[in-house]
Structure formats: structure tokens, C-alpha cells
């Protein structure tokens, strides 16, 4: 068994060390005897995404995010939309999350188009507005997710039921409606980095299992010893005061 993980824009969108999510998924597969190929996907044409099992994209600086947005919408848009519609498992964090939504309106009012797979849009409330920075804890079903957020834009969902999780402590999508992240099919968008997956192994395994189910019909995953991960998770909970 082998999974192919596509790391979208590893150079452009690498601001919050979201590489950690790729490392985490790859290791958790290898520790279970599943082969992994990590494929870096840079700007430029993408002929086919059918052999990808997972797609990850992180956050970038303003200038990089602009370049990524152009490439995503104009060059790769239809190929990725087809693959994601077909059940490709994807995790988009921070700036990547914003680009997977409908649009991002920056602090000057200029709109950056997204590929619109997530029912979300993002508005930066303007220069001088407070950034959403700090430790964050959310409820995802029965699980607590922990991470760190650092974003100026506020994200709003067209349908509140599309939220990934509910904020327990921190800002989340917009600091108002207590939603965090968004989900459509197997596509997950979130503001949590830290990196997200190493400290939230249950969520990491959820993504792996979805990819295995889609490709190989695998029903479950053998457990791993997550003592160290659990300790880091608990420490993050304590720091967030949750």
C-alpha cells in the first residue's frame, strides 16, 4: 500500500511551518508499514491530480499568497476542483484555507479569488485592526484540537453547518461566531497551525484513514503509541487555559 501526498506550494506557502503536517502524515503512515511518496507541487501547470491521495497547503506572506492565488485560480483550478470533488483528502491551513474559499478581500479592499471549494469567504477588516494571534482550542466532534493562530483576515461561512469545529478558547474563523475552519467533502480548512497534526494525532489519523478508504477500502487503522503526542496536546490545552 502506498499513499501519495501532494504538498502544494512548499516554497510559497511555508510561513507557519506547515511542513510539520506533511512530516507527521508521512511518519504515521510509515510507522504502520504504509509507503508514502511526498510530491512537491510548485506553480505551473498540473495535468492530472488523480493519483494524489492527500493534498496539503499552508500559509504564506502577502506577496507569496498573491502569487499562489494567481496560480491556483488561473492554472490549477479546474484540475484540483475535479480531484477534490472526487474525494481527494485535503488540509488547507491559514492562507491556504483562505484560498480554498471563495475570495479574500485584503486590508485595502482588493479581492483575491480563491478556488471556492469551501463555502467560506474572508475579509480583512483593515489596517490597524487587531490580528487574531494566540493559542487556540476547538471542539471537533468529541475531540479537542489544539494549535496556534495568527491571521488578520476574518472568515465567514455561507452555511454555519460547514464549520470544521467550535471554538473553546481563541478566535477561530472571525472571533465572533465561535466557528473554526470549514469542511466540504474530504476538504478541511483551518486556522490552526503549530504544527496542527503532530499535536492532534486523532485528526491526523482521520485524514489518513479517509485517504486509505478512498483508495483501498481499508476500514480501520492500527493504533500507535501516542504518549508523547498526548503530552504535547495536554500542555497546549493548559497554555490555552482550556
Amino acid at each position: 500500500m502506498k499513499l501519495v501526498i501532494g504538498h502544494l506550494y512548499p516554497r510559497l506557502m511555508n510561513m507557519y511551518a506547515d511542513r510539520g503536517n506533511v512530516i507527521c502524515l508521512a511518519q504515521r503512515c510509515r510507522w504502520r508499514g504504509i509507503d508514502v511518496e511526498v510530491r512537491n507541487i510548485h506553480p505551473g501547470p498540473l495535468s492530472d491530480a488523480a493519483d494524489l491521495d492527500m493534498l496539503l497547503v499552508g500559509g504564506g506572506q502577502d506577496r507569496e499568497q498573491l502569487l499562489a492565488s494567481q496560480d491556483l485560480v488561473e492554472t490549477k483550478g479546474h484540475v484540483l476542483r475535479d480531484a477534490l470533488g472526487d474525494g481527494l483528502v485535503a488540509l488547507a491551513v491559514c492562507g491556504g484555507y483562505q484560498l480554498f474559499g471563495e475570495y479574500y478581500r485584503d486590508h485595502t479592499g482588493v479581492e483575491l479569488r480563491g478556488i471556492g471549494v469551501l463555502p467560506a469567504y474572508t475579509i480583512h477588516p483593515g489596517e490597524g485592526s487587531q490580528r487574531c494571534i494566540g493559542n487556540v482550542v476547538t471542539m471537533w466532534h468529541e475531540e479537542k484540537l489544539v494549535g496556534f493562530e495568527n491571521h488578520g483576515g476574518r472568515t465567514y461561512l455561507n452555511d454555519p453547518a460547514a464549520a470544521l469545529a467550535t471554538v473553546a478558547s481563541g478566535f477561530g474563523n472571525n472571533g465572533k461566531d465561535r466557528t473554526e475552519g470549514a469542511r466540504w467533502r474530504n476538504v478541511y480548512g483551518t486556522y490552526l497551525h503549530g504544527s496542527l497534526l503532530p499535536k492532534n494525532p486523532a485528526f491526523a489519523d482521520h485524514l489518513i484513514l479517509q485517504a486509505l478508504q478512498r483508495r483501498f477500502g481499508v476500514p480501520s487503522l492500527p493504533p500507535l503509541d501516542d504518549t508523547l503526542e498526548a503530552a504535547a496536546h495536554d500542555r497546549a490545552l493548559k497554555l490555552a487555559g482550556a
Binding site: D18, G134, N135, F148
Partner: peptide, 15 residues
């Protein structure tokens, strides 16, 4: 550490 002078965000260790 994650005090103010270190930066509260420890994500960077993954880079």
C-alpha cells in the same frame, strides 16, 4: 521556551 522574547508560537521547530 515560548515566552515573549522567544515568540509564543513554537511552530517554527517544524521548519
Amino acid at each position: 521556551q515560548d515566552r515573549a522574547a522567544d515568540g509564543h508560537d513554537v511552530s517554527w521547530i517544524w521548519d
